[in-house]
């Protein structure tokens, strides 16, 4: 579905991605885990053709119209309300404006449809950005740190939504530095450190492989064992 082979990316003298290789399967949630600066967003930017790689190849089995995107900067039109923001994209995708309201319902923002974006809380903006990403029911969904900075209740709501999207047939590629989140919702993960993938596979299997299961699988312990550093 999504494939990266031997990707190398340099910014000047600095190599930010070194020999990145992974593959995701259809209808799975694939998590890319690592601390800030590990190269997670750079990988999304390369996959979505916003950046070009210096070496290697990558492919996605979906057209731009079949791809949804939520990035660290939401790019929402701050003076417009939630519904107007989604209607712009409904117009671009050529789908009914009814879908905008449906997408708002899915993220729990239907009662805030007429609120201007610049009056929303951070969590609400994140949910609106997700609503825009899922508006056209994409085959592939990129979510860059979807729960970063959110309270646990809102984060849980977003987890439910992501799991629901997978149930409906979407492939979700998400980045996070929250190991618990990865264990809870990801089918497979890749651990990224300083631009290199140090481990990848099914979260519980990775934890068992590295004897990092006490009461629950502990991916953070694996990460510290592999890299010598924590995530925060």
């Amino acid at each position: 579905m999504i494939k990266m082979t031997n990707i190398v990316k340099r910014f000047g003298e600095q190599t930010v991605l070194a020999d990145i290789t992974f593959e995701t399967y259809t209808k799975e949630i694939f998590g890319l885990l690592g601390p800030s600066g590990a190269g997670k967003t750079t990988i999304i930017n390369i996959l979505t053709n916003q950046l070009s790689a210096d070496e290697g190849t990558h492919s996605i089995d979906a057209t731009p119209f079949e791809t949804g995107l939520m990035l660290d900067e939401d790019g929402l039109y701050v003076r417009l309300n939630c519904l107007e923001n989604l209607n712009i994209f409904a117009g671009i995708y050529g789908i009914s404006h009814k879908k905008s309201m449906e997408a708002l319902k899915r993220v729990g923002l239907e009662s805030d449809a007429k609120k201007a974006v610049n009056t929303l809380s951070r969590g609400m903006r994140q949910r609106l950005a997700i609503a825009r990403a899922i508006l056209h029911e994409p085959k592939v969904l990129f979510l860059d740190e979807p729960t970063s900075g959110l309270d646990p209740v809102t984060a849980r709501g977003i987890h439910k939504l992501i799991l629901n999207l997978r149930e409906n047939g979407a492939t979700v590629f998400l980045t996070t530095h929250n190991m618990d989140e990865a264990v809870k919702i990801c089918d497979r993960v890749a651990l990224l450190h300083k631009g290199k993938i140090v481990e990848q596979g099914i979260p519980t299997e990775i934890c068992h492989r590295h004897n990092a299961v006490k009461t629950v699988p502990d991916l953070e312990a694996v990460f510290i064992k592999m890299t010598g550093v924590g995530l925060e």
């Binding site: 057209t63 990035l71 939401d74 790019g75 929402l76 039109y77 671009i92 995708y93």
Partner: peptide, 13 residues
Amino acid sequence: EHKSLRFLVMAGV
């Protein structure tokens, strides 16, 4: 500046 253009381009505009 607000990266809105990025999302338009990504949507195929």
